Simulated assay, not measured.
Amino acid sequence: MTNTHCLICHDIIQPSIGWISIFSKEKELLICSICEGKLEKVEGETCRICSRPFQFLDERFKHDDLCHDCKRWEEDIDWNGYLTFNHSIFTYNEFLKEIIATYKFRGDYVLSRIFAPYLINYVNKLNPDLLVPIPLSEERLYERGFNQAEALIIESGLISSRLLTRTHAEKQSKKSRSERIHIPQVFKLDQEMDVKGKSILLIDDIYTTGSTLRHAAKLIKGSGAQRVHSFTLAR
């Protein structure tokens, strides 16, 4: 048996030995149990729209089944109802922050293999018509060499639909919530792709304020899509 190394820490993975592993089909081992244990899954009660966990959220920022941020988005007539639901897998802790930095900024494309099974599982449940990666600006794409959202789709063996292109290059992470809401539309839609009546799944790495995903959802739904969901690795 050849040794398998963890894609994160690069240590040799020690497979568990027992009745289950002996009699079940062995899944591909990509990360060790230590690294897997450092990933915090989004669990328990969450916001109906953005997947924000309610477990440690102050009651002042919880409004029935919505978090405070989503309540404000939904109360704004310019943004109400565009994003149906965002499904996030993990909380954005320091460990995942480092993984995503390695993935995005240091060009470690292979890390997309770790998260591919989660996307496949969600796509099988949702059965969307199109999987649309959130695009990078030309400048960011040149810097990184690949779009991490599209890499996740491709590594999952799924078809990526380049429905959107980015028209606004400035990083939104530097902006306040108000600035993010009021900037002009940051995406452009490929007019040759028909989205009328279709279910669209947007793919991105992190859900922070939801501004990027809502800009994309607003454009797509305004062009006739039936519903727009999103999938992100981290919340």
Rank of each mutant, 00 (worst) to 15 (best):
S51E: 03
G197K: 01
G157R: 02
L111H: 10
L126Y: 02
F187R: 12
L213M: 15
R162G: 06
R227M: 09
F105D: 13
E40H: 11
L233Y: 06
T208K: 02
E40G: 01
T209I: 03
P53Q: 08
R177F: 13
I17N: 06
L141H: 09
T2K: 00
E98P: 01
D76A: 03
K188F: 11
A116V: 08
L164I: 05
K171W: 04
S230Q: 03
E59P: 01
F231H: 04
Q14D: 07
I20V: 14
C70D: 02
I134P: 07
Q172R: 04
R180P: 13
E139F: 08
S178E: 15
I77W: 13
A149E: 13
S24W: 05
K104N: 08
E43V: 11
L119D: 04
Y103W: 04
K174Q: 13
I8N: 05
T46M: 07
S176M: 07
R52W: 05
L164G: 03
Q148E: 10
P15T: 08
H182V: 15
K97R: 08
N86F: 12
R52D: 05
Q226N: 12
Q191W: 07
G210Q: 04
I89S: 09
L141M: 05
L111C: 07
L141P: 01
S211Y: 14
H68D: 05
D194F: 11
T212A: 14
H5T: 01
S24K: 05
N121W: 15
N80Q: 05
E170P: 00
N147E: 11
K62R: 13
